[in-house]
Amino acid sequence: MTTILHIDSSARQGTSRESRSGSHSRRLSSRFIQQWRLARPDDDVVYRDVGANPPRPVSGEWIHAAFTKPEQREPWMQAVLSESDALVKELLAADLIVAGVPMYNFNVPAQFKAYIDNIVRVGQTFGFDRNREGEPYWPMLSGQNKRLVILTSRGDYGYDPGERIHHMNHVERSIKTAFAYIGITEVHSVAVEYDEFADTRLQASIETAEAAVDTLVMQLAALGPAPSRVARVA
């Protein structure tokens, strides 16, 4: 069995399939999970909506507690870290992380940045030893075969490598950097563009992205090349 951690971070509720004001990233992540369940119904899916319920931002107390050795933590420190502990536990248990992350002003939503800040934890997901020769920091999740899928949406177009405004895209880049830091380096991504244009180009982009999601599910679930093995979602 595979354990999937499904994360949504859009401030929009609902999907753009359900409503014109719905989220494209939620649409893609929902489709991914629907297709995966069709292919592998016995796998476990854990859902975390940080768009609707953002993790608390890192505070001075959080930092103090996180960098205190576990056996030396006072009760208030354990309370401060309790939410982060739960998020880390979910991540550690997951084989596949499916993250719906829209672009807000060229980067990830604040809600998802708060999530990253809570799961990049010394002694939990990365190690640190100032006396260690060479690199004092190291990823603790390396070699666990964890995979990350980023499903995003963008108001403009041309953010992919080699395109007109790729240099302004800090979504996939920042997520990949943070997750590689803790040892998750196999990353796949699919994007919807043209959201702010709201015309036929947006519809074409959605259709292309949904087809890419279907193909990605088929690849990651090891279903083989036959498209008929993955049902289309109406």
Rank of each mutant, 00 (worst) to 15 (best):
R31W: 13
H188F: 15
V108P: 10
A114W: 13
A79M: 06
L148D: 02
M140G: 01
N107W: 09
M103G: 04
D160E: 14
F67T: 05
R56I: 03
A79E: 11
R26N: 14
K69R: 14
P70G: 05
G155N: 03
D44R: 07
E210L: 12
D214C: 06
A211I: 00
A39W: 13
S153P: 15
A52P: 15
N145T: 08
I7W: 14
I165C: 06
N53F: 12
W62Y: 14
E196I: 12
V192G: 13
H166R: 03
L220K: 07
P55K: 03
Q35D: 13
T200N: 15
A99E: 13
S228Q: 12
I116V: 05
L216Q: 08
H166I: 01
I175F: 02
S29G: 04
Q219N: 10
A94Q: 03
D199S: 06
N131G: 01
L87D: 01
R17G: 10
S84V: 05
L96E: 01
R12I: 08
S59Y: 14
R154M: 02
G123Y: 14
D42R: 10
Q13W: 12
H166W: 08
G158K: 10
G183P: 12
P54D: 04
G155F: 00
I182N: 00
I116K: 06
F179C: 00
V58P: 09
A66C: 09
G14S: 08
A191R: 07
Q203V: 01
P57L: 01
W76V: 14
A66E: 14
P102C: 12
E210I: 07
H64D: 11
R20K: 14
V45N: 02
S23C: 14
E196C: 06
P109K: 08
V217Y: 00
L28R: 09
I175T: 01
D214S: 05
E193R: 08
A212H: 08
N131Q: 01
S29A: 02
Q35G: 12
A178M: 09
K89G: 07
Q72R: 09
Y194E: 03
Y115V: 01
K176V: 13
M77S: 03
S142T: 12
P70N: 04
N105G: 14
Q34E: 00
E210V: 06
L96P: 02
A110N: 13
L5V: 03
M140R: 05
R12C: 07
R73L: 11
L220Q: 05
P136K: 00
A11T: 11
E61T: 06
P139T: 11
L91T: 00
F32I: 01
T15A: 10
R173V: 08
